[in-house]
């Protein structure tokens, strides 16, 4: 059976909120190392990958591999009943037809219990190769969201260029064009404001802004976002879910082709 207790329901609430417009139904794959999710959007342009390692929970117990087939719209309805600061416990049997969710207020003076019906989801799993990216950018997540939102007002796609001069986001549309250039920046007093750029070779790729703006719904999960680029491979946009390494929400986006 599965029993997983999260100290803050906020993490799961925000993960589901960030992905529910990209993915409707997905399996939460539970095993002794934690809970993982991988799903493509309907048009197979983007891939969502979530990992919540066992050490993100206390306690965590999962004796056998269990796939929890969940409709995210339904899960959202249940999670709406949890306060961000509630303690969240997930429970399921080895071959479950429902997922039990318990929300406890931190004072333990309120306990809510829900059972969510599960579904059989036959989902393809993709192998994501280990990639040495040509450019890795770590920046404030709200800043990345602002850039994507601002540029989407002008165009449906953005070209991201990484060079020794910095990272340049460029778009052009019917009303005109725009660009934003980021340079490495270290704020000693406020590390969250840092922009870190690692570059091994210049990169230029074009992506659909609609998807990038969608990924930015995860900005509430983490102060910083890591963006990884290499020529002719999908873009990786990654948000840390906890302070522990390995628990993250990742989005992969196939580049635009032919121009």
């Amino acid at each position: 059976m599965l029993e997983a207790r999260l100290d803050q329901a906020e993490i799961l609430k925000k993960v589901v909120d960030a992905i529910k417009d990209l993915v409707q139904d997905c399996n939460f794959d539970c095993n002794d190392s934690g809970i993982a999710l991988q799903a493509m959007d309907n048009s197979h342009v983007a891939l969502v990958s979530m990992n919540l390692q066992a050490d993100s929970f206390a306690p965590y117990r999962c004796d056998r591999n269990i796939a929890l087939g969940v409709n995210l719209t339904s899960l959202t309805k249940v999670l709406r009943a949890a306060q961000n600061t509630d303690i969240l416990t997930l429970r399921a049997l080895d071959a479950p037809d429902s997922l039990n969710l318990v929300f406890e207020s931190q004072d333990k003076d309120r306990i809510s219990e829900y059972d969510l019906k599960l579904m059989d989801i036959d989902q393809e799993h993709l192998g994501i190769p280990e990639t040495e990216y040509a450019a890795t950018i770590k920046m404030p997540s709200v800043e990345f969201r602002r850039i994507c939102t601002d540029l989407m007002a002008l165009s449906e796609s953005v070209t991201i260029e990484a060079s020794k001069d910095g990272i340049k986001f460029t778009c052009s549309g019917d009303i005109g064009n725009g660009s934003v250039t980021l340079r490495q920046h270290t704020n000693v007093e406020n590390e969250k404001e840092n922009i870190e750029i690692e570059l091994s070779e210049p990169v230029a790729l074009t992506f659909s802004l609609k998807y990038l703006v969608n990924f930015c719904k995860a900005a509430g999960l983490s102060n910083t976002v890591t963006i990884c680029l290499s020529n002719e491979v999908p873009l990786l946009v990654s948000y840390a879910l906890t302070s522990k390494a390995g628990s993250n929400l990742r989005f992969y986006l196939a580049p635009k082709i032919g121009d």
Partner: peptide, 14 residues
């Protein structure tokens, strides 16, 4: 979508 690559052409099925 036109001009848009598929993620499946980059990542292999397991």
């Amino acid at each position: 979508p036109k001009g848009q690559g598929s993620i499946m052409s980059f990542f292999n099925k397991k």
